[in-house]
Amino acid sequence: MGFDEDWAGLRSGTTAQDPVGTRLNQLDGGGGGGGGGASGGAPNLATAPAKKKAAANTIENELEPDTAKAAKWADAATTAAVGGFEGWATAAGLKTVETTWDNQVKNLLARLASEKTALRGAALSFGQQEIDTRARIAGVRPTSRIEQY
């Protein structure tokens, strides 16, 4: 028997079977399944704009300045070490390390600034959405015949 005959036999055998489908015997024990929120009820969205603002302020007032301070301290120490090893291959290696470090610090500071901006933007966006929703709800009034007079 050749391939074509085998293939034709397999195809004819599958058409006689029940249609293929997926069946779940149970939901995932870890809360998966998509049927509801974390508590098993209806899905909900909770946000805390004040906490987002506080996190953004922490980035701005603590993390960014402390990171920049640590970077300057490391640069000073590396520059001193490069001077101490002048003329040695170690000095060139330390210069490469310093360049890599500076690039990583720039990337970290850019990432912190991006996160700070995103947190503030999210807090503002959710707050504005709340105001818009309240305004729309307040604008919906039941119609009454009394308003015709």
Rank of each mutant, 00 (worst) to 15 (best):
L63M: 14
S39L: 11
G33V: 01
G84Y: 05
T58K: 13
G40R: 00
L109Q: 13
A16S: 08
W101T: 13
T79I: 07
D75N: 15
S12Y: 05
G36N: 09
D4R: 12
A56E: 00
G9D: 06
A8L: 04
V20H: 11
G83F: 08
E64W: 06
M1P: 10
A46C: 04
A56D: 00
D102I: 13
A56H: 00
E86K: 13
P19Q: 10
Q104Y: 08
K53G: 01
N61S: 13
T79G: 03
G32C: 04
N44Y: 09
G36C: 09
I59W: 00
K52D: 12
A48G: 06
G21I: 06
R111Q: 12
A46M: 06
G13S: 14
G34R: 05
L108D: 06
A48P: 00
L10S: 09
A77F: 03
T96H: 05
N61W: 03
T78V: 08
N107C: 06
D102S: 15
A91H: 03
G21A: 15
N57C: 03
G41P: 02
R11D: 05
W88F: 11
A113W: 01
A92G: 04
F85R: 04
A38D: 08
G40Q: 03
E60N: 10
P49C: 01
D102V: 13
T99G: 07
G13I: 03
P19N: 07
P43V: 11
W73M: 12
G35S: 11
M1T: 14
W88Q: 12
G37E: 03
S39D: 13
R23Q: 15
K69G: 10
P49M: 01
G29L: 09
G84K: 02
W88H: 13
W7R: 09
D18A: 15
A110H: 12
G31K: 00
P43C: 06
A76G: 10
L108H: 05
A48R: 08
A77G: 02
A54N: 07
A56V: 00
A56S: 01
T14N: 08
L27Q: 08
T96V: 05
A71F: 01
D6N: 14
T47C: 03
D102M: 09
T78P: 01
T14C: 07
G33N: 02
A48T: 11
G36K: 06
N61G: 07
E60W: 02
G87C: 01
K72Q: 15
A76W: 12
A50L: 09
G37T: 02
A76L: 10
T22F: 15
P43D: 05
K69N: 14
T96A: 08
L108M: 07
G9A: 14
T99M: 05
G30Q: 09
T78K: 06
G37L: 02
L109K: 12
G32T: 04
D6E: 14
D4I: 14
A110T: 14
L109Y: 04
T14P: 02
A71G: 11
A55M: 09
G21W: 10
T78G: 03
L109I: 10
A46G: 09
A92I: 12
P49Q: 01
T90D: 11
L112A: 03
P19A: 13
E62C: 08
G87F: 08
